[in-house]
Nucleic acid binder design. Structure first.
Lengths: 137, 137
DNA sequence: ATGATAATTATAACCATTCTAAACTGTCTT
DNA sequence: AAGACAGTTTAGAATGGTTATAATTATCAT
């Protein structure tokens, strides 16, 4: 959308904060994710998106980048399948539908689910996240 | 194994209903799970439990049995990690803590979490399950 | 530009799981 | 009792997503 000269200041800032150099590959992937908007991706699908615009990035780099972006707070990992990792460009707290027939992940509209949580977290641990998946078929 | 083992009538009934013969291996695994009580297992941990009482069952059979038991409603699968499948002997609707440091899965006490769900399930699909995982570290 | 450091890459390794094909088990027939 | 058979178990190979390795290449501070 924005011109290629215009840097993705937010992403750049987050990369910098995480001590990650703004390399071609990382910027290309960040741009793809930014342009695509809210979406759920896998390593393979992200590589194909890059390939579709003639950018060849090795799977190793795709995986590295996904985890680095996750650690830097640019992506969130969503665990819905044993055997495949999904990453979400929407880093806000929200929940998911997972279609077990099509393997399609989608957001549950904000506010559609609220929880009353009086669960006492196990001793010696602290809360990481609360994940809700509504599986449909 | 032998006739002196008290039959697990409920399991036997469920196996029969699922068209599964009550073989030595299936009965042995059912007995292990029954004796252990509420627990979360992996294929590997179940095989080790069997091995601990001198019952050798191949991993292929462990996996087959886990899925057959799941399909027969004897076990529930819990997905909390990309890369490993957990099975739960508690088939009642309930939610989980997952300790990301120790990879330990535990039940959230019944009633500790309630949800208000007004989410509209995607067109052409029907509800399979609602899974909640509170991740701690 | 130069050198130090970090990143990318192809490829191999990994590991939980599934597949395959052969051997086995128990039951039913005769 | 022997044969036939369908279902089951098994060892080992294959699979598939992910991670590790080691060499090459890019980036950055000076």
């Amino acid at each position: 959308m924005t011109s290629k000269i215009r840097p993705y200041t937010i992403v750049l800032h987050k990369l910098e904060k995480a001590g990650l150099r703004p390399t071609k590959q990382r910027l290309a992937l960040a741009k793809i994710l930014h342009d695509k908007g809210n979406c759920h991706i896998t390593a393979e699908s992200l590589q194909m998106m890059a390939c579709a615009i003639n950018i060849k990035i090795s799977l190793a780099t795709i995986y590295n980048t996904l985890h680095q972006f996750k650690d830097a707070g640019i992506l969130k990992e969503v665990i819905v399948e044993a055997g495949r990792s999904y990453f979400d460009t929407n880093i806000e707290q929200h929940y998911h539908f997972f279609n077990q027939t099509t393997n399609q992940l989608s957001d549950i509209p904000n506010g559609a689910i609220t929880i009353n949580n009086s669960a006492i977290i196990p001793d010696g641990t602290s809360l990481s996240s609360i994940d809700i998946v509504i599986r449909v078929a």
